[in-house]
Amino acid sequence: MSHDELCESLLTWVQTFNLEANPETVDELTDGVALSQILCQIAPNFFNAGWYGRIKKEVGDNWRIRVSNLKKVLEGVLDFYNDVLGQQIRDFKHPDVSKIAERRDLAEMGRLLQLVLGCAVNCEHKEEYINVIMGMEESVQHAVMNAIQELMSKEMP
């Protein structure tokens, strides 16, 4: 699966969440704001108001703010895997958030989306998210399945 296809399929998944501004393109995810809102819905106790408050909402074209937001999202996700799921993702190349912020790199964006997806399908209320995925178009489900399988192959308790 190409990075394009992975990102587009995971964008379709992102659009199933009730977000303040529904992203219409992968580009709109590169400021980290929508991803942070998804994490707050997935695990509100972990990604709490204090954490969300550190995400800057008015990003505009400022790539430094994008990097800062994306770093917080990535660190939060990795902490969630360690502290809540009790898993480490070994051999999974962590997304380079600078490349996402500076040049909207789809390969890196795909990896970050994959990690957020992993939080959703492993969290306490995963049924809710998995059932939504099971209602999606077959091609999207297939892309999501591949993304999860790749992550699962790197998980170490």
Binding site: V84, L85, G86, Q87, V121, N122, C123, E124, K126, E127, I130, I133, M134, E138, Q141, H142, M145, I148, Q149, P157
Partner: peptide, 29 residues
């Protein structure tokens, strides 16, 4: 070799996968 094999990407495969995810225990331990 499996190209075109019926059922390789069908609903059953997807349902099996997601149902197995549902039955997987969440969280550590």
């Amino acid at each position: 070799m499996d190209a075109g094999k019926p059922g390789a990407t069908n609903e059953g495969v997807l349902a099996n996968f997601f149902n197995s995810l549902l039955s997987k225990k969440s969280g550590p331990g």
